[in-house]
C-alpha cells in the first residue's frame, strides 16, 4: 500500500481524502460508461459541463473561504442577484452584462470582507446577513419576477455557445480553476491562506497580513458567485432572483467531499473540482437510471440520495484519516 501510494506523495491525512475523491469520481464515470449507452456521448458530456460550470465556480470560491477556516453563505443569493443585474444590463452590451454581474458579486464579496475583518463578525453570521440582503436586492431589482435577457447583444453566447467544440462556461470554469490552482499552490499568498486557516493568531504572529488576505478571499468568492450568476442568466435567458437557493450548501458539500477540512488549513483546488463534479454526476447518473425505465425517481428522491452519498463519502474520509493517523 505504501509503495502503491508513493507517487501521490501523501504527506497528510488530507491528501488521502483528496485522492479518495478522485478515485470515487473515476469509479462513478466507469460505472456510468459501462451501464448506460449514451453516458459518454458528446451531448451528455457537454451539457453536463455547461450546466455544472456555475456550481464549480462557486465551489472554487468556497474552497478558498473554507481553507481560511471561514464560510460564505452568501454565494447563492449573490449569484441570484448577479443574474438579475446581468440581465438588466445585457441590452446595452454583452460585456455590460458580464462585468455588471461580476461587479455585483465583487460588491457583496467586498462587503463580506469588510464585515468579517473590520467589524469582526463571525463569517457564518456576517455572510448569512449578506445572503438575505443579496436575495432581497435581487428581488427588488427584478420586481419579483424573472428578467429576460437581451438576445441582440450576444449576451447569451456566454452561457449557450461553444468555443473550439467546448461550452464557453466550461472554458470559464477551467480558466478559473487553473488560476485558483496557481494561486493556492504556486504563489506565496496561497500558502498564507493555508497558514491563516491553520491558525489566525499564529499567522499574524508569523508576520502575515491576515486581514488583507481574508478580505481578498471573500472578494474572490463573491466575484466568482457573480460570474456564476452571469452564466445562469445567459444560459437560461433570464435573470432569476429566486434561483440560487441552496447553492451555498451544494458548494460546501463539494468542498468537503473534495477533502477540505471545515476547520481550515488544508485543501486543494483540484480535489474541489473533483468533489463538485462527483456530486453533480450523482444527479446525472440518476437521470440515466430513470431513463432505463427500471425505476422512476423524482427529483426529491435524487436529493435524498445525494445527501446519503455525501454522508457516505464524509464517513469514509473520516475513517481513512483515522487509519492514516494510526500508521
Amino acid at each position: 500500500m505504501q509503495t502503491l501510494l508513493r507517487p501521490f506523495a501523501i504527506k497528510s491525512s488530507g491528501d488521502l481524502a483528496r485522492i479518495g475523491v478522485i478515485l470515487a469520481l473515476a469509479g462513478l464515470i466507469l460505472f456510468g460508461a459501462l451501464r448506460y449507452d449514451n453516458f459518454l456521448s458528446p451531448f451528455n458530456i457537454l451539457s453536463f459541463l455547461r450546466y455544472n460550470s456555475m456550481f464549480a465556480l462557486i465551489a472554487l470560491g468556497m474552497a478558498f473561504v473554507i481553507i481560511t477556516g471561514g464560510i460564505d453563505l452568501s454565494v447563492g443569493g449573490t449569484a441570484a442577484m448577479a443574474s438579475v443585474v446581468a440581465a438588466l444590463l445585457s441590452p446595452y452590451h454583452w460585456a455590460a452584462g458580464l462585468l455588471g454581474g461580476m461587479a455585483a458579486g465583487f460588491a457583496v464579496g467586498a462587503l463580506n470582507g469588510f464585515i468579517i475583518t473590520k467589524m469582526r463578525i463571525q463569517p457564518f453570521i456576517g455572510t448569512l446577513a449578506t445572503m438575505l440582503a443579496a436575495y432581497g436586492t435581487g428581488l427588488l431589482l427584478a420586481n419579483n419576477q424573472s428578467v429576460s435577457v437581451s438576445y441582440d447583444t450576444g449576451f447569451t453566447v456566454i452561457g449557450q455557445d461553444d468555443f473550439l467544440g467546448f461550452p464557453i462556461p466550461a472554458w470559464i470554469g477551467l480558466a478559473a480553476y487553473v488560476l485558483g490552482w496557481l494561486v493556492l499552490e504556486k504563489l506565496p499568498v496561497g500558502r498564507h491562506i493555508l497558514a491563516i486557516g491553520d491558525g489566525e493568531a499564529t499567522a499574524g504572529l508569523m508576520g502575515l497580513k491576515v486581514e488583507r488576505t481574508l478580505a481578498a478571499v471573500y472578494l474572490a468568492s463573491g466575484t466568482l458567485a457573480g460570474l456564476a450568476g452571469v452564466i445562469l442568466a445567459s444560459q437560461f435567458g433570464a435573470g432569476q432572483p429566486t434561483e440560487g437557493v441552496g447553492w451555498e450548501l451544494f458548494a460546501i458539500a463539494s468542498v468537503v467531499v473534495g477533502g477540505t477540512l471545515l476547520t481550515g488549513g488544508s485543501g486543494s483546488v483540484g480535489a474541489t473540482l473533483a468533489g463538485a463534479l462527483l456530486l453533480a454526476m450523482v444527479f446525472n447518473i440518476l437521470n440515466f437510471e430513470n431513463g432505463l425505465g427500471w425505476i422512476s425517481l423524482s427529483a426529491y428522491w435524487q436529493s435524498v440520495i445525494r445527501g446519503a452519498f455525501l454522508l457516505v463519502v464524509v464517513v469514509l474520509q473520516a475513517k481513512l484519516m483515522a487509519r492514516h493517523r494510526a500508521i
Partner: peptide
C-alpha cells in the same frame, strides 16, 4: 518563539520556516 510554539501545524516544515519570505522565481514560490 512563544511558549505554545506558533507554527502553522498543517503546513510543511519548509513552508513554516519561509512563510511570508518565500523564495520566488518568476513570482512563484
Amino acid at each position: 518563539i512563544y511558549q505554545e510554539i506558533n507554527l502553522a501545524p498543517q503546513r510543511s516544515v519548509a513552508e513554516n520556516i519561509y512563510l511570508s519570505r518565500e523564495p520566488k522565481r518568476f513570482g512563484m514560490i
